[in-house]
Design a protein around this nucleic acid. Structure first.
Lengths: 356, 356
DNA sequence: CTGTTAGCGCTTTCAC
DNA sequence: GTGAAAGCGCTAACAG
């Protein structure tokens, strides 16, 4: 009734367990005759190696853990997709663990990974989590993402500050002067860097600033949009800390009769797939999210495989977002509506995939 | 240098490993004094139990595997989110494995799960995969999703046929008569059920049918839209086998100068978050995807915990999609643009979540 | 080339 | 209440 073990196979093939192991792992010398007998027994018994046992024996799990704050929305799904792709290619499994809002939970999640994974990718937008990962992971290789530019630890970060500056400069370049910012949640390092970039760029241009609070959600963006629309001297441009909020704000503005971009131009951040599909298409700072995920996983595996090597790769890779101009700031870059698709085609790549 | 083991703790606390185990697992009688000594040692050594070893010993991994055909797009990310939520609540981990287009790959993925998980959720939109899962999984509990109504095996399926009929009937009810269908990929059970529903409903109404091929992707929907727009007697309604294609088709139609819904009404399937945000909002058949994922995981865990029980839950749960009417078929249900948000609010819930 | 054996780190009877 | 010892299923020396 219970699944066959390597001993059952050995017994049946009338060889030692060692030989079975050799045949199955492909390591070590084996006679063709032996191999054949083993394979037959494997077949007959429907034997499948127990990877847990193998892991314990080799102290390698071929699995990496991904610790996320949340699993909502396109940003993270894209990220995981990229990681999964790379993991498959490298023969690794992916174990995901999300919804860790506070450091406490994340901490528990990380400890529970010991003996289960060979390494960890930790997304820690909150300050505490970064240290956390280091202290708790023990000797486990860890790759940090979206944390501040934490020196001395392998990590990948987005140039949030630079992106924010680019966003503001683009708005200014298109003639906007009263530019507001919809900020992300306080305590979130990425949100804070984007806010800082906004403030700096505005100061550099000698323009007054307006900041509305948000929480990275579409709903919070919507609220912010309502506020913007109701302002006495309404802004003529807004830079939202992410696409989600930008989209929420656009909806609110349009509901209030504010025309985008004529009355008010909107810029987001991330370039989630949705950004190119809303109406009007959203100008944003593109991060190739899936690609970043792929890169993260590959680096982690490299880290794992060279574990202990002195030339530890403790670099902090910086991903620079790229400005993608769409109709939400520039009417000339029309949405693909009743118009030639030519101009929009480049800016609005359609994500693929067979989804029911 | 290496992480501490239970023996290190035992030595340090000057007790047996058994006692350490008892303290840590909370099982068995222990003196307060002993417990205290153990905890101190644990603290001092930064000891974290090795879950792999524990798994081998208890033959429980507290992990479930999810086998997916692909990880692209909102459908699957929503699904995983629901599963992850339930898994956390039940103390389980989630290991995801995707991009298994053919049965061969899925097969390999499934076997590689042995000894790594306590059960499997298999999404097998292709015929072969379902059987496969059964035969390969051995004594592993398996929950099938999105396979045909496979009797005699625990599963969750969407009532694709019924949904398709509802879609067509809605189009007919709004006065459409030349109703086309954009089909999903052949060989995909869900796509085929939706096609069958369309054909049946049309036949029942005595209307002629038009079927355009698609592949569940936005791009294929776009192509289909181009074809529809170019037809000699253009349809005045179209039912796409999923939202992705419906959205792609809408874009193509609008580019061709066809007005939606005035000239041509569009209905999708799934109600992915995007459906409520495109312009015009897409009428579709709503499946609460995350909820379905949650339900799937909970059922699997129940299956695991009652493993071997005679009253095996081999039921096939049927999820009935619900028609959500939006402007793509009914101009009266306006998009939230320059209009009261009241009517649209119910139909266009904004998904939440903090995403950078 | 093959078999024997000692673990991997932990849980769990079973005596004491 | 506590400890010694026997595995969980597999791999990897080490002898033959």
């Amino acid at each position: 009734m219970k699944p066959a073990t390597i001993r059952d196979v050995a017994r049946r093939a009338d060889v030692s367990v060692a030989s079975v192991s050799r045949v199955l792992t492909g390591a070590g010398p084996v006679t063709d005759a032996t191999r054949k007998r083993v394979m037959e027994a494997v077949e007959a018994l429907q034997y499948v190696p127990h990877s847990g046992a193998r892991s314990l024996s080799t102290s390698k799990t071929s699995t990496v853990g991904v610790i996320l704050p949340d699993l909502y929305g396109e940003y993270f799904s894209e990220l995981i997709r990229g990681m999964d792709l790379a993991a498959r290619a490298l023969g690794y499994h992916l174990i995901v663990s999300s919804s860790h809002d506070d450091a406490e939970e994340a901490s528990a999640a990380i400890r529970s990974m010991r003996g289960r994974v060979d390494g960890l990718i930790v997304l820690s937008p909150h300050l505490g989590a970064a240290n956390l990962a280091g202290s708790l992971a023990g000797r486990l290789p860890v790759l940090l993402m979206n944390a501040g530019a934490d020196a001395g630890r392998p990590s990948i970060v987005v140039d949030n500050h630079g992106g924010a500056v680019a966003a503001v400069e683009h708005l200014i370049a298109t003639g906007r002067r009263r530019i507001a910012h919809i900020a992300g949640p306080t305590g979130n390092l990425e949100a804070e860097a984007r806010l800082a970039g906004y403030l700096e760029a505005m100061a550099a241009a000698g323009l007054p600033t307006t900041v509305v609070d948000g929480a990275f959600t579409k709903a919070s963006g919507h609220e912010a949009g309502v506020q913007l629309a109701a302002m006495a001297t309404r802004p003529d441009g807004v830079f939202a800390a992410n696409d989600n909020m930008a989209i929420g704000a656009m909806l609110a503005l349009q509901e209030a009769g504010v025309r985008v971009p004529e009355d008010l131009a909107v810029v987001g951040f991330d370039d989630v797939p949705l950004a190119g599909l809303v109406h009007p298409g959203l100008t944003t700072l593109r991060i190739n999210i899936a690609e970043m995920g792929r890169s993260a996983l590959e680096r982690l595996v490299k880290l794992i495989q060279s574990a202990g090597a002195a030339d530890a790769d403790a670099a902090c890779e910086v991903v620079r977002p790229q400005l993608v101009v769409r109709p939400s700031t520039n009417p000339a870059t029309q949405n693909p509506t009743r118009a030639s698709r030519a101009s929009a085609a480049a800016a609005v790549p359609l994500p693929e995939g067979e989804n029911p």
